[in-house]
Design a protein around this nucleic acid. Structure first.
Lengths: 338, 338
DNA sequence: TGTTTTTCTGGCACCGGTTCCACAGCGCGC
DNA sequence: GCGCGCTGTGGAACCGGTGCCAGAAAAACA
């Protein structure tokens, strides 16, 4: 392993000149730069990012805190972030946060603080005021994806609006017995996405003057999660709704599979709508509200890099609402007996 | 932000003593240690990992090179790796490698080389001899998951054996018209998993003296990928096989959905077997060969940390073969007219 | 009690870059 | 001819720790 001093010696210049030549900062004559560059190439020299970080205080590394990897939405966000970061020459350090409170504390107190990252992206993790303060005290730009956090810029779809729209779609088709199959309402970690989706659903029902008792079922955000709930919910003909608004496409698909197994035809006997536009949505003919999680990651990165590289960059809007699109396929239709 | 010197001053000791007290290396009296610790706590001191890395040459950071995030197998491996690393106090830096050759070069030449990582795990990425050599020249332990690489230890299931077993299961049920729906045989990036699975399939057929012309269909490793191939393959009654060995469960499930749509009953008209034991496999009644990707990640980490922390650690076996298990569910059955 | 060994502590060099500062050379305007 | 600004370069301090070494103090041993 060769170090800068070797390169400088070989090129016949001082360390400082070599540094300037390679980093492109400050005055260096064209000729000298070339000599340094060829020396570096010949020696296979690569800067020690550690040494550089020590003095500049920059690591070219962004921390991502995320609760899941193996779920469509999160994996997409992560891919988007990764792509954008590598494009800009940044590393991505991944912290998966489970519900484990200890782990969470450890990640924030131990990992994120050690001057290892230049910025932090929290995906669907509601940072506590204390956590925000701690990271901001270190001068690290922050961004949230999936919901708002007081004091930091964030990106997300408008969950309330999306759910209302999904529900209104079902209502407009004449459905009255509508159930929302969504996530745990008391889950602490995230931005209350689940409860906001439920709230949007409720709002639409109320506006339409529809009252449904027993209007909610909890499911894990996965296909098997939706399947299980689907079986128990649809198995009993007395509780069976005519339409279901699922908290995400994975749940919706699980429900559709359960329905098929129970001989319930979609959309004749049951309409189903989801959120996401999961890659499987099309083949299942699932009506859904499409979002593009990858672009959320992408935009968060772009913004953070702005902050990192131009300390005087304009502080962005507190919250960016990303577009969604209703994609009507074959899983929703007018109520049969309507 | 306070630095070690502040802590030392506050505790009334020298920097070196403070360093020893906090890191736990070398002699420090009980009393002094306590004073240093309380001073550190009071100041909210956290070591600068950058500074520490510069002098020790250790970063407590492991690089993971992986081709996909949003596919079950990869996400599971990644989760396993992450969990194991955080448990041991290591960071995980993620590099997603697409087929883009330029990106690949950039990751290896620029990102991985800068003394940022203590070790590298390559998931399903066949490192070239040059890449291996380069990383080893830096003294970085390496490990591969998903296949063998000359000169570095690796973990994987025995793809050949697994495929043979899956195929033999179908043969033993009396099937003769068997097709393998798997991955692109010429894909460069990975460990020829695809071709090894095909080879195992072929081997089983040959041993049983079965000849099938047109015994392979290529599919993307995803549910929609399997679905698409399923539609075209099963749509034509003249080409329709009686059994399919899918390269992974996602493909298998896509095929099952296509079959259902075409009115082909499983297992009466068609047997399907996959590999993985994907979370959806159970609800689809899919017969499969189960593997546990998370534990592959886990074991790779354990081994690498050994290597990092005990330079004299025994060099492990070149290749560890991980167990798989045949789980027979309802998607395979004896050939109807047999 | 004297000597050796062990525990404890401070000083200082060092990791490998970046950057500030000083200085030299040069062109240009007055 | 002199002063000024710009370009180009080297010297040296510095980032924030770690760890070697020397020396003092305490403990163990003879």
């Amino acid at each position: 392993m060769s170090i800068l001093a070797d390169v400088a010696r070989m090129a016949g210049v001082s360390k400082s000149t070599a540094s300037r030549a390679l980093s492109g900062r400050g005055y260096v004559s064209h000729d000298t730069r070339r000599r340094v560059e060829t020396a570096a190439a010949e020696l296979g020299y690569v800067v020690s990012s550690t040494a550089a970080s020590l003095v500049t205080g920059r690591t070219r590394n962004v921390g991502v805190v995320i609760p899941y990897i193996n779920r469509w939405y999160f994996a997409e966000v992560l891919e988007g972030i990764e792509k954008a970061l590598i494009r800009s020459g940044y590393d991505l350090t991944l912290y998966r946060l489970s519900h484990d409170v200890d782990l969470r504390r450890r990640v924030f107190d131990y990992f994120l603080v050690r001057k290892r990252v230049d910025a932090v992206i929290a995906v669907t993790i509601a940072l506590s005021p204390h956590e925000v303060q701690m990271l901001q005290a270190l001068g690290k730009p922050l961004a949230g994806i999936g919901g708002r956090v007081a004091g930091i810029p964030s990106l997300s779809i408008d969950d309330l609006e999306v759910s209302r729209l999904a529900t209104e779609h079902l209502i407009s088709l004449g459905h009255k017995r509508i159930i929302h199959v969504g996530g745990d309402q008391t889950e602490q970690m995230d931005f209350q996405v689940h409860s906001r989706r439920y709230d949007g659903f409720r709002e639409a029902l109320e506006r339409a003057g529809i009252t449904v008792d027993d209007d909610f079922r909890e499911a894990e955000f996965s296909v098997p999660g939706g399947y299980q709930v689907g079986l128990s919910l649809l198995g009993d003909p007395r509780t069976r709704p005519t339409a279901i608004f699922a908290g995400c496409d994975e749940i919706a698909i699980g429900i559709m599979i359960a329905a098929r197994q129970l001989g319930i035809s979609i959309p004749q006997d049951l309409s189903v709508i989801g959120i996401d536009d999961h890659p499987m949505a099309e083949m299942f003919g699932l009506t859904t509200l499409a979002q593009r999680p990858g672009s959320q990651g992408d935009r968060a990165v772009e913004f953070l890099i702005q902050q990192i590289e131009h300390a005087d960059a304009p502080v962005p809007d507190e919250h960016v609402v990303l577009p969604t699109q209703l994609i009507v396929r074959q899983s929703t239709a007018a109520r049969r007996d309507a």
